[in-house]
């Protein structure tokens, strides 16, 4: 038997979040998400959580389990190696209800860094070609599924809501490293401030919590290095 200790909170009714325990008998290979669905279907229909794809590609089911940010759908209960599993909503966000948080500020920042390819030159007759070597430069950053596990895990986010956070900055690196993108200087200017790269203290909670094993802190450092070179040459 495993006890799932889940933080429950309904802002319309409850004064503050409180933990409630659910004891379940896990089946072989049961993930946290399976357990949550099991509880919702058989024990407590009021339990609220987000989920969609169940295969670690949509990023909806990110939550905190035993203090670590992860995806509920690709983490098996047995992998946590504990008889008591504490589930909480992602820190640093407003709780909407139970395990569902308000992601709007996260996506505000994501929109602000222009997460799309910007080209200025006239389009070529066929597609814009890229060598496999250059594609490799941002292989890591391109894996991001925007689950916000990294941004939520960053201690800087817990006091300062103006910081862009690792997810948005990794996305900036994804386009800066892409040689088809023609807005490098604009992108580097956007992150060379107290909302951007200079607030990172390389605490590495972002890299540690990434369910896609992206070296988020590394991406941020590559981006920062680029900002340094451009700044020294007076181009940012």
């Amino acid at each position: 038997m495993v006890v799932l200790r889940i933080l429950r909170y309904n802002p319309a009714k409850d004064e503050r979040p409180t933990f409630r325990n659910y004891e379940i008998g896990p089946t072989a290979g049961m993930t946290i998400l399976d357990a949550l669905i099991h509880i919702k279907e058989n024990m407590d229909p009021s339990l609220t959580f987000r989920r969609s794809c169940r295969s670690a590609i949509c990023g909806s089911c990110a939550l905190t389990a035993n203090g670590k940010n992860l995806l509920a759908c690709n983490t098996q209960l047995s992998a946590l190696k504990k008889k008591r599993i504490v589930l909480e909503p992602l820190p640093g966000f407003q709780i909407l209800r139970d395990l569902a948080v308000d992601w709007e500020p996260f996506f505000d920042k994501y929109r602000a860094i222009k997460p799309y390819l910007i080209t200025k030159s006239a389009p070529p007759a066929k597609e814009r070609i890229q060598s496999p070597d250059i594609r490799k430069r941002y292989d890591d950053a391109a894996k991001c599924i925007m689950c916000s596990a990294c941004t939520s895990s960053c201690p800087v986010m817990w006091t300062d809501d103006s910081y862009l956070g690792p997810a948005a900055l990794t996305k900036v690196w994804r386009f800066v490293a892409d040689d088809r993108d023609e807005a490098t200087e604009e992108r580097l200017s956007m992150v060379s401030n107290e909302k951007g790269v200079w607030r990172c203290h390389t605490i590495f909670r972002c890299s540690e919590s990434c369910p896609k094993d992206i070296d988020t802190a590394g991406c941020l450092e590559f981006l920062r290095k680029k900002v340094v070179w451009y700044s020294l040459r007076g181009r940012v």
């Binding site: 709007e104 505000d108 956007m190 060379s192 909302k195 700044s231 940012v236």
Partner: peptide
Amino acid sequence: MQQTVHLKASRRSFWLWFF
């Protein structure tokens, strides 16, 4: 509710970090 985030380069932030 959507909100617009404004981003502007700050030379001072860069120099402080660099030094």
